[in-house]
Amino acid sequence: MKKRVLPALAVALTLAAGGPSWAAEAAITIKEYGFKPNVLVVAKGTKVTWTNEDDIPHNIVGAGSLFRSAALDTKDSFSFTFENAGSYTYFCQLHPFMTGKVVVNP
């Protein structure tokens, strides 16, 4: 158990030394033409990673084009760190009926 924790701690310390506060991470899965979870609530500064589990490509476009991924083929990922509180809707440009939301708490 200790062996697993130590590298993680080292990473955290490195990040802390670099200035930013604790870097949280969260994941969204793209599956069956949907974003899971569809509404994700995170704290400010969270790095959100989308991973495509479908056998067809998708992409991520944040409303207002704050963030925009390239085409994500099967198993491809895209990450964006939300630095400001707010509610961010996003959709898939290939299938614009696929929409999701990230709510960032202050």
Binding site: A63, Q93, P96, T99
Partner: peptide, 8 residues
């Protein structure tokens, strides 16, 4: 080319 959520 419409980049709004929704449809074409």
């Amino acid at each position: 080319m419409s980049f709004a959520a929704g449809n074409a």
